[in-house]
Design a protein around this nucleic acid. Structure first.
Length: 428
RNA sequence: GCGGAUAUAGUUCAGCGGUAGAACACCGGUCUGUGGCACCGGCUGUCGUGGGUUCGAAUCCCACUAUCCGCCCCA
């Protein structure tokens, strides 16, 4: 038997309804904030990711699905392609390629789609996973650098969580400063770690070498007192970064979005600058990050584009759905208004004709088969969640009026063809 | 990539050397144009895959694969 490959999965009903629900709500909320959809390719030139996400990150270093695309002619070079591991790089690439900055306006773009990382699968972690994300990007003159944009994006996410009905999540906020600040901080961290790293866990000893920022993320209890004494990123922010962060917090306070400043929150993509944030949720096991994002003021330039500061986020749809399931029991399964039961040989055609008429007028319905006995039709109707059964038999066709039965009450009456839609819609 | 657990019907699980089972679900009948109840009957399985031990393996052993839980990392 051929099975779905490692880390991929089929999302079947009724679970797929939850994905649909979250996607619908997200679109509604995005439109309230004037975001429009962008769809970028699922694979890109490998360099796009190595230059944005960062050559040294785990994502680029060992988690990408990359292959050599065959050259089609002698004169052509083979090209290294990669299944996108995230979508911000693709959006910024499109921004540069289509000169969206020349419009002078802020671009507010959202996307929904699959991403790919070759990680070990776990609860809430798949090799093909789905993200919903949005980006605000544009020339500085359009206000793309303003802390108001950071606050707006974060506030929008709080609104989305409310709208979908996720309650038990917390917002963690931090500022990682600009590239200069981070370089200085990294150095200070290395220096501070040198004398004490020997007393720390083996993981930290390794992190101190490869990526000192990650030490802050350590969960080993014994290491906590040491970590508490390490230098803080907030002490290494320059004045503009400090003011920017203060303003973000001020606006969030004003609109009533609760957050915790977490100076130990570290994000794994190299392009982040200044504001970073994460919404976490219990009930996700080790994968507690529901969604994460931040500012990326230098990304466009790193990709050879114009100066185009931006801020965005990505929401893990798979995890979002798990969080939703852990809070609410049932996804309401979509249902139809009526079920048409053709009764007796030769009735399929008349039933199909009626179904076409009703559906054209916006009545959702399911259609049985003339081979079904009534009992079977009723059961099928019940399973489809139908409110009414419409019987299409010889008598009905002759009279051009149909038996309409209310499944719950058992009441039945005969309704002329012309009045059928009205009769169905009159009963909510 | 590392560590641990698990893998039997559509689902939840029992069986732990001797004929593959239960419950629920599903299908059919009683009941040929009025269901949901009841009763009767039935289907569903390479017992994750491959190898080994044994007269005999779902059961014991080995390898592989997948899933789940941690680590790592991230959404």
């Amino acid at each position: 038997m051929i099975k779905a490959v490692r880390g991929t999965r089929d999302i079947l009903p009724p679970d797929s309804a939850l994905f649909e629900l979250v996607e619908e709500r997200a679109r509604e909320v995005f439109h309230l904030y004037n975001f429009q959809e962008i769809r970028t390719p699922i694979f890109e030139d490998t360099q796009l990711f190595s230059r944005s996400v960062g050559e040294e990150t785990d994502i680029v270093g060992k988690e990408m699905f990359t292959w050599e695309d065959k050259a089609r002619a002698q004169s052509e070079k083979a090209q290294s392609l990669t299944l996108r591991p995230e979508n911000t790089a693709g959006v910024v690439r499109a921004y540069i390629e289509h000169k969206l900055g020349d419009k002078g306006q802020l671009q507010k773009l959202y996307y929904i789609g699959p991403q790919f990382r070759r990680e070990r699968p776990q609860k809430g972690r798949y090799r093909q996973f789905y993200q919903i994300g949005a980006e605000v990007i544009g020339p500085p003159s359009a206000g793309s650098e303003s802390p108001a944009r950071d606050a707006e994006v974060i506030e929008m996410l709080a609104a989305l969580l409310d709208r979908v009905g996720i309650k038990g999540s917390t917002l963690q906020l931090n500022s990682v400063g600009c590239a200069n600040d981070r370089a200085k901080y990294n150095e200070a961290l290395r220096a501070a770690l040198k004398p004490v790293v020997g007393q720390m866990c083996v993981d930290c000893q390794r992190r101190a070498e490869t990526n000192p920022l990650r030490v802050l993320d350590c969960k080993v209890p014994e290491d906590q007192p040491i970590i508490a004494k390490l230098p803080k990123i907030s002490d290494y922010l320059d004045e503009p970064c400090r003011e920017h962060f203060a303003e973000v917090k001020k606006i969030l306070d004003a609109v009533g979005v609760k957050y915790e400043v977490n100076e130990r929150m570290v994000r794994g993509l190299d392009y982040y600058t200044r504001t970073t944030f994460e919404f976490t949720h219990g009930g996700l096991g080790a994968q507690s990050a529901l969604l994460g994002g931040g500012r990326y003021d230098g990304l466009s330039e790193a990709l050879g584009g114009p100066k185009a500061p931006g801020i965005g986020f990505a929401l893990g749809l798979d995890r979002f759905v798990i969080a939703l399931q852990s809070e609410t029991q049932s996804a309401q399964t979509p249902s139809v208004k009526a079920f048409i039961a053709p009764l007796g040989d030769g009735m399929n055609a008349a039933a199909a004709k009626l179904a076409r008429e009703l559906r054209a007028q916006g009545v959702a319905l399911d259609l049985g088969d003339e081979s079904f006995r009534l009992k079977k039709s009723f059961e099928a109707a019940e399973r489809a969640g139908a409110q009414f059964v419409i019987i299409v038999g010889e008598n009905e066709v002759k009279a051009d009026a149909f038996a309409v039965k209310d499944i719950k009450s058992g009441e039945q009456r005969t309704v002329a063809r012309a009045e059928l839609v009205q009769a169905l819609k009159a009963n909510p």
